[in-house]
């Protein structure tokens, strides 16, 4: 099983289920996972102000499936903490579950689409592994998706994600107009695109040429982690002389999956730094994690 954490929703899924659809709204959204044959699970979440009437929702959904979507064999299901329904259509069985997480104030709905028969054991494993972390309480926020395993300061929100085959770039920001940003990347097929040293590549990715750079490297369990740190001019015209933007980047290739991992932080010129002392952590495998 593989762990996934998306917008504070944590769950474990079979290794061959991949996230093919996702939403970036922390208050309301949907993600969908597929194996090599079909979509297998859809998860949707919604921030709530009060606990909804789950039994009433299931009842409404029951009649909706039966009368409007023309599903057959609609039965009510009860897991320890989940309320659900089972139905079938065109010989395909689907199970739906919902639970309200009172602490976090989230309603989570899950739909499993089974290939042949319902796998109750797998269903239980997934449902029992799912929890929603209360972001108001914790200072850290974890993300586990697309092979990236990150630990960020909780005030950093996901602002943009660019997920392509074998290339994922996630941008997080804080403050007005993203005063401070953190970028996490994971890229495969390194032999085909990484034609320079890792430090050179990290420098090339900066928004403008740096004025000062310090480079260091550390070897951790066979992972050679390159770190660059410095500042670059910020703004335009005369402002460039006086204003500067600090940056720090780390990058390495994991010897286990031969993928390139990098983490970068940029701080816009301001009196206060948006980066606390907690730091940001990116892990590629159980053997290696690096902190900014």
């Amino acid at each position: 099983m593989t762990s996934w954490i998306w917008h504070n929703i944590s769950l474990e899924l079979p290794d061959d289920w991949e996230m093919l659809q996702f939403a970036n709204n922390p208050e309301r959204g949907r993600i969908a996972f597929a194996d090599r044959y079909d979509f297998r699970m859809e998860l949707s979440w919604r921030k709530t102000n009060a606990r909804p009437d789950l039994d009433g929702m299931v009842k409404d959904y029951h009649s909706h499936l039966l009368h409007e979507l023309e599903h057959e064999d609609v039965d009510t299901l009860k897991n320890t903490s989940w309320t659900g329904l089972q139905s079938s259509r065109d010989g395909k069985v689907a199970t739906r579950f919902m639970q309200h997480f009172d602490d976090a104030g989230f309603l989570v709905e899950i739909v499993f689409r089974w290939a042949d028969q319902r796998d109750e054991r797998l269903e239980d494993d997934v449902l029992n592994s799912l929890y929603v972390e209360n972001s108001a309480v914790s200072k850290k926020r974890n993300w586990k998706c697309f092979g990236l395993d990150m630990e960020l300061q909780s005030e950093f929100e996901l602002s943009e994600i660019n997920a392509l085959p074998a290339s994922v770039v996630m941008d997080f920001g804080v403050g007005k107009k993203d005063k401070a940003t953190v970028r996490a990347e994971r890229r495969g097929l390194t032999d085909f695109w990484l034609k320079c040293s890792i430090s050179d590549w990290l420098i090339q990715q900066l928004p403008s040429p740096p004025k000062k750079i310090e480079t260091s490297r550390v070897n951790r369990w066979g992972h050679e982690i390159i770190r660059i740190k410095g500042f670059m001019p910020f703004g335009s015209g005369w402002g460039k002389i006086f204003r500067r933007q600090e940056f720090e980047s780390i990058g390495w290739i994991c010897p286990h999956d031969r993928r390139f991992y990098s983490l970068r932080r940029l701080n816009r010129p301001s009196k206060a730094s948006y980066f606390g002392s907690e730091g940001f952590k990116l892990s590629c495998c159980p053997n290696c994690s690096a902190t900014l």
Partner: peptide
């Protein structure tokens, strides 16, 4: 060969 997941490889 390239240690990709099924869907990464499929799309490429």
């Amino acid at each position: 060969k390239h240690r990709l997941t099924f869907h990464e490889s499929r799309v490429s």
